[in-house]
């Protein structure tokens, strides 16, 4: 079976500063992986690099996504190919309504598959459905992308985009940060609804609490640009209890 995502010995830097130093990781279809680690360990760099954000330089290693080379693709091509990044800090785009934004994204996904754009009626129905599930007021569809949204609304909006675009791999970058307990539950349910035997999830988080809602198959500890320990869900509990210090020691 081809791995959904295969990262092999990946090193990367930002400017002159090496951040990732030989990271390897494989995610099979149906699996949920969590990456935990202290600040500055390279978690967000990994997420942004996978999504194709400019400003990161890969110095060695490869990343295969569904058996094809990921790193040579543009950000939008990665999205079309089924990779999704839920941002840690979703950006505001004033004046561009959510509806317009979502429609543009869906249309370009369809075009990339050589299909017609989805029918407007069905599109609106689906978006409203998802908004409802995620406890987002329908008014939000008319507002500018993330414009004036609370932290929790922004994160739920990310999950709405995840559900709408139906990727095969979701990378969640600190999606739990800034969420209260209710919002955390809603987000967790959203991600669980996305899980399937063919999809994968890569969760990047600081805390174990998200893992109460989204149960991972594997937990990795990232430290100084490398995975230094891999285990099951129990590893997260251990980390919560003891902190990261005991691993590095």
């Amino acid at each position: 079976m081809t791995a959904l995502l295969a990262i092999d010995n990946l090193s990367a830097r930002v400017g002159e500063k090496p951040i990732l130093k030989g990271l390897s990781l494989a995610i099979q279809p149906g699996e949920v992986h969590a990456i935990m680690g202290p600040n500055g360990s390279g978690k967000s760099t990994l997420a942004n690099l996978l999504a194709g954000k400019p400003g990161y330089e890969v110095t060695s290693g490869t990343v295969q996504f569904n058996g094809t080379d990921l790193l040579s693709q543009e950000a939008e091509e990665r999205s079309h190919a089924g990779l999704f990044l839920a941002f840690q800090y979703p950006v505001e785009i004033p004046g561009v309504s959510n509806m317009e934004f979502l429609k543009a994204a869906l249309d370009q996904h369809a075009a990339a598959r050589g299909e017609d754009a989805p029918a407007t009626g069905a599109f609106i129905k689906r978006v409203r459905e998802l908004a409802n599930e995620l406890d987002l007021n329908a008014e939000f569809l008319k507002r500018g992308v993330n414009e004036g949204f609370s932290g929790g609304e922004k994160k739920r909006n990310e999950i709405l985009q995840l559900r709408l675009l139906e990727p095969t791999l979701a990378v969640l970058d600190e999606t739990d940060s800034g969420l209260d307990i209710d919002a955390l539950r809603v987000v967790g349910e959203g991600v669980n609804a996305f899980r399937s035997p063919t999809n994968g999830v890569l969760m990047i988080t600081h805390y174990q609490r998200l893992l109460d809602h989204i149960r991972p198959n594997f937990v990795h500890v990232l430290s100084d640009g490398q995975i230094i320990r891999t285990g099951g869900p129990e590893l997260a509990l251990e980390l919560e209890e003891k902190g990261y210090g005991w691993l590095a020691a």
Binding site: K53, P54, E76, S79, F87, I93, G95, S97
Partner: peptide, 21 residues
């Protein structure tokens, strides 16, 4: 980047952002 990571190419993204502006 937010637009591109959702599959919207740069030119369309700029046009959307300008229209929003």
């Amino acid at each position: 980047f937010a637009c591109r990571s959702r599959g919207i190419d740069e030119e369309k993204a700029i046009s959307m952002i300008v229209n929003g502006f």
